Simulated assay, not measured.
Amino acid sequence: MNVFKRLFDFYLDSSIHIGLSVYALTYTTLIFFKMPYDEAVLYFTFYSTIVTYNFIKYGSSAKQYFFVATRYLRYIQILSFVCFVLACYYALQLQLKTLFVAVGLGLLSTLYILPFLPKQKNLRTLPGYKIAVVALCWTGVTVVLPLLNADVSLVETNVFLLCLQRFLLILILMIPFEISDMSYDDAALGTLPQRLGILQTKRLAYVWILLFIVLEFYLRNAFSVAFFIAAGIGLLLIVSIWQSRIKKSKYFTAFWVESIPIVWFLLLLLCT
């Protein structure tokens, strides 16, 4: 059991689970637009997500990221390097315009922790920006990149609605993390639970979940199987918000909450 727990912790700590969530959401975009399997985009998003999140979690400065002190972090560093090489391999298979957007999103993610303003400010420390930056990056990676690489026009109504729905989904998924981290986050971050309180933040999340389901209806334009799957995902989101607490177990947020996109993808893959 101890070996299993250590492997499972490494699976979570090394961001593999987050990578799978991003892979799943990217694949749902392909399913929605009935596009063929795109290995380059899917594996690029998977591997680059692992690299990016490990950099965000363990690289508050470049020196600390490249020179780690513990064996455990060294294993994560080795995995990140392998994923970086694989991400570069698949990046070379992307269209140039897709790669340009990917680089832009990568830079935005880097500014999440690296200072770019006076007094060592980064995007994460700017009040109210944390949740929006994460949602914007995930939307860009999981919706815009696969569509660009498939030469789908980004000015279509369905693309806009899907981006809005995906943005809302990420905002909702971030709420349990925002609430759980309240005891650790600096008050200057101005997170939603800090500004609105936990109860009001949960109520806002419930409204977002309703909008998520409504947007699914407009996207499908019918009470289809995919719509009812999305409604079921909405119920999972409601439960995750309702169960959110300060200092909640990391397994609740890092595994169960982040598994929701994977569940959505698997249901779509099996039932549609």
Rank of each mutant, 00 (worst) to 15 (best):
V41E: 05
L92V: 07
R195K: 15
T142F: 04
T26Y: 08
V133A: 07
W138S: 11
M1H: 14
V257E: 08
L147W: 09
G140K: 08
K119L: 10
V141Q: 04
A91N: 12
L269V: 06
F255I: 03
V225N: 06
Y184M: 14
L215Y: 10
V82Q: 11
I50A: 13
F67W: 13
Q194A: 05
Y206A: 01
M1K: 12
A188Y: 11
D13W: 01
V22R: 02
E39S: 10
V144D: 01
I209N: 12
I170P: 08
L108K: 06
L107R: 13
F212W: 02
A254S: 15
A69N: 12
G197L: 13
I31P: 03
F255M: 04
G140L: 11
F55N: 02
P127L: 13
L173F: 07
R74K: 15
Y75H: 13
I78W: 14
L92F: 03
L162Y: 15
K130S: 11
S15M: 12
D151N: 15
K121A: 04
L161P: 00
K250G: 12
S109T: 09
G19C: 08
T139G: 10
V257S: 08
D186N: 13
N158W: 10
S61G: 02
S180W: 01
Q77A: 06
L210R: 03
L148K: 07
L73H: 04
F177D: 09
L123A: 09
Q165L: 04
I238D: 09
L145P: 00
I78Y: 15
I179Q: 00
C83E: 01
F55R: 00
A87G: 00
F67I: 12
L189Q: 11
E216A: 01
L99C: 03
I16E: 05
F265G: 02
I262M: 04
S224P: 06
D151Q: 14
I241E: 02
Y11Q: 02
N149T: 00
I179K: 01
N221V: 10
L161F: 04
L192W: 15
Y65Q: 09
L20Y: 05
L267T: 00
I229E: 05
R245S: 13
R6D: 07
V159A: 04
L192T: 07
I179P: 00
W138N: 13
K57I: 06
S224C: 07
C137F: 02
F67H: 12
I172G: 11
F100T: 11
A205K: 09
L235T: 05
R203T: 01
V103A: 13
F265K: 05
G232C: 10
A231M: 15
A205Q: 03
S61A: 02
D13H: 10
Y37H: 14
Y218C: 05
R71G: 00
F32M: 14
T272E: 14
L154D: 06
